[in-house]
Amino acid sequence: MTANTQNPGLVKSPAISKYLPPLPLLPLQPVLARIVKTIVRRQPGLFARLGPGTKKKFLIDPTNLPIVFLLEPDPQNPKLTAIDRRKDIERDVYIGGTFMTLLRMIDSQTDSDALFFSRDLKVSGDSEAMVALRNALDDMDSTLADDVAAAFGPLAKPMRSFLDSFNKIAESKS
């Protein structure tokens, strides 16, 4: 499957972003680069499980935020980039859900199949790459959210507490 920009799951102008000026995403990119580097360092087996999925582009859409993330898990040059959702974005795989849903999923608090059954998780595109990513991320003793927190170095503990508080809110609402 070739990458494309057609994506019925992606709402380009949700209420939150409709009237916003262009988003200042530049300061966010080094943080995301640091997160990716931390994940690669802490999870060396990730790429082997991803297989051909390492060459794919995964669009991760927190549907209630004005930005989306593009993950390119190439072992030679892994990238995670924040992008204004109003832009056309070339991707192979689309994964969408509210920020809370995605957080609980990457923190292994909830099962992605169950989220798919309940329609809280929306997916489209290259299913093989999508399944490989899901399984690769699941083969960790820590969670992806742990790695995100670890990327903040000395602030890892407060960051983890911050994510935990989000999880608690999400759990109380589920």
Binding site: S127, E128, V131
Partner: peptide, 28 residues
């Protein structure tokens, strides 16, 4: 249902069609 043969498509109304190979197997 080999993963590379599975395709999900959601329309603007939020209806999702699941296909396996050339067959539509459900529409939610």
């Amino acid at each position: 249902s080999a993963a590379h043969c599975v395709h999900y498509n959601e329309d603007e109304q939020g209806n999702m069609t699941t296909r396996l190979g050339e067959f539509a197997i459900d529409r939610y």
